[in-house]
């Protein structure tokens, strides 16, 4: 998608953090040499177009409870149906089809590990497929965004 110059600068400059001051959008406008209305207008437009998923806090998932990465090896003929069922679980917050013997990958998040274990049992019982359960051991990097300097 095409971004105008101000939109690109807005994303590059504030994707890692925005000012924690009483009028943040005004402070952002000053940093970008435009008006507060310009900032609010661009943010609203970028959000509506989907270029921004949101403006606000990104929470550390693990602090909110337990999470794990799960993979299923789903026979191709059943993939659509199993994927749709998995997406229905409120505990599933990412669900990706990937090119591998393990072809369905998703993240489970819940209040505690016991809850996740119950969901894993439920998935196994419902699908007849054995989930590969890969909880995080150590985080070497969490998502803080990545450079967009080549973004056009």
């Amino acid at each position: 998608m095409e971004l105008d110059n101000l939109s690109r600068r807005l994303i590059e400059r504030f994707q890692h953090g925005m000012p924690l001051c009483p009028e943040p959008y005004r402070a952002m406008a000053e940093a970008l040499d435009c008006t507060e209305a310009d900032v609010l207008d661009r943010l609203a437009r970028l959000q509506a177009e989907g270029a921004l998923s949101r403006v606000g806090p990104v929470f550390e998932h693990r602090r909110a409870g337990a999470s794990t990465l799960v993979a299923l090896s789903v026979p191709e003929a059943r993939l659509e149906q199993v994927a749709a069922r998995i997406s229905q679980f409120p505990e599933v917050n990412h669900n990706y089809r990937r090119e591998h013997r393990y072809n369905l990958w998703f993240v489970l998040t819940g209040p505690d590990r016991a809850h996740l274990s119950r969901v894993l049992d439920e998935i196994e019982a419902e699908t007849g497929l054995m989930p590969l359960d890969l909880p995080m051991h150590t985080a070497y990097r969490i998502d803080l965004g990545f450079p967009l300097e080549t973004l056009r």
Binding site: Q15, G56, V58
Partner: peptide, 20 residues
């Protein structure tokens, strides 16, 4: 919460997929 790590960042969060 940010200093403590419960909030990773407070930001304009891009959707990289939509950005190409």
């Amino acid at each position: 919460l940010h200093a403590d790590g419960a909030i990773r960042r407070i930001a304009a969060v891009p959707n990289h997929y939509r950005l190409g």
